[in-house]
Design a binder for these strands. Sequence first.
RNA 1: CGGGACGUAGCGCAGUUUGGUAGCGCACCUGAUUUGGGAUCAGGAGGCCGCAGGUUCAAAUCCUGUCGUCCCGACCA
Length: 566
Amino acid sequence: MRYSKMFAPTLREVPAEAEIVSHKLMLRSGMMRKVASGIYTYLPLGWRTLEKISDIIREEMDRSGAEELMFPIVQPAELWQKSGRWEVYGDELWRVKDRHGRDFCLGPTHEEVITSLIAGEVKSHKQLPIMLYQIQNKYRDERRPRFGLMRGREFVMKDCYSFDRDDDGLDVSYHIMYDAYTRIFKRCGLDFRPVEADNGAIGGSSSHEFMVLADSGEAEILYCDKCDYAANTEIAQTADKPIKSQEPMGEVEKVLTPNCATIDDVADFLGFDTKKTMKALCYTADNEVVAIFIRGDRRLNEIKVQNYLGAVTFYMSTEEELAAAGLVKGYIGPIDQKIKVLVDEEVVAGRNLCCGANDKGYHLINVNYDRDFTGEIGQFRIVEAGESCPHCDGTLRSARGIEVGQVFKLGTKYSISMEANYLDENGKSNPMVMGCYGIGVGRTMAAAIEQNYDDDGIVWPLAIAPYQIIIVPVSEKSETQMAAAEKLYEDLTAAGYEVIFDDRSERAGVKFKDADLIGIPLRITIGDKSLAKGNLEYKIRRGGKSGVISVDNALTEIAEIMKEIK
RNA sequence: CGGGACGUAGCGCAGUUUGGUAGCGCACCUGAUUUGGGAUCAGGAGGCCGCAGGUUCAAAUCCUGUCGUCCCGACCA
């Protein structure tokens, strides 16, 4: 590609809208432009990288025995009503009407449409297993789109679905996909980690998220410093069991704590350590208000609570709901509580704790589980870095990650609701057992930049660089330089490399800056001084290693250099 | 959805407090001199000051509304 013909509008300054590195650099390097919040145009350079990633995904999906197909973006409401998600999905489902007033949605994912397809076409155990995938735009009407391609409302996703006759079959499909994902992200040059993840409302029994480690990541993960245990903090476990306090129990006492609505206020006012307090968090789970008590210094793990309750709808109770349940905000306690009470194991193990008195302005001290109150016990707090690994004697460390992919055992949730059944050898009808597997393609691209950049711009991993080599003649006025560049361009292109020939009439500095900004892995510079000696210069973008190669042997020597580039 | 900020040329911004000819840097066009890490000089083009009302002799500036964008939080399959 000749740079003079390329549509790659680079920017010297960062548009004010961009906050994180990948977003800034994608705008600056002319890879994308915003059309509306969370909706972007991919310019040629960005599209090339997106397609490179897509191609890697395709190769590994095909190698795994999955077949590519294409579903529609627009899906009729009936399909979603059948699965029950038309109601459950909420405002994130992008609903549209046609001219007749019929309801449709823009697909945020495709379980409904594929399960309905398979239900109609597949009837026999002989046709299973089946694995199908597509790479296509997805639509989620996010409340707050963020960080460029990290969280868009329209985004490119690879989604794959497996259909097996039983759980054993699903296990096989799941592991095939897990391995394929590992190969894909490795080939994209990413430093990533598969972590155990929440199954969420989608249902199912097992799930892993593939996290690219980066400080800008939205997800928090905990990983063991000894074994390979790693989990999203949402579901992370610890082997640590709270030690039962041997402190003798004191008498419960009601104390005045005016204007102490938060746990820090109360602890300060009474001179208590927050570890000696418990706090109440009230959630409405399927229309029932539930109080969860955890130690004052801990964070509540909403997902653990929701999963424990098996609730479909789950949110922090509103003031009205609290009042209706007879609760006094800021002073909620577990004693004589009428509503359902969940108690974290640390609260159970503690002694002489402080809690709300269910009376505005008052707290109770010397409160103890069993003697003074009861409730359902569990681990409802968020596990913190520093606690013990649940699998070995290692310690959990925390890191941030960008979720670029997820593999999921769906089980029969959709095959039952969408009636995807097959007949086994005995003529008995069974629901198919499903798995689903997603990769955010644009997010993978953004994550790759988050891990590969420097002050000058992007440092693309070779496998996903839009072009591999850029040829920069120092001056386009020099006929010898241009002739040498032209020949090298033709030779390299003929040899199968993807090459940019910077034939613009710009000063050398501008061309160097642009080459660095757009992150091309290898630069070949053609200047009079070295050309006079029969040489070309090269510079590797990552690490900045440079040197000379001979004009006569250029192809062979470049092939050698390319082997060094990751 | 709650809180905060912002909308002025393609990009980055000043001007708004105190109403009175719309500015700067980069990018862009012409020419000259330059030419190995974002050149210099001279000349030039480009703006419905987000939009709609209102106040006023006069509004980028004050008031009301509205649309859009970003950040924090909440939410998130």
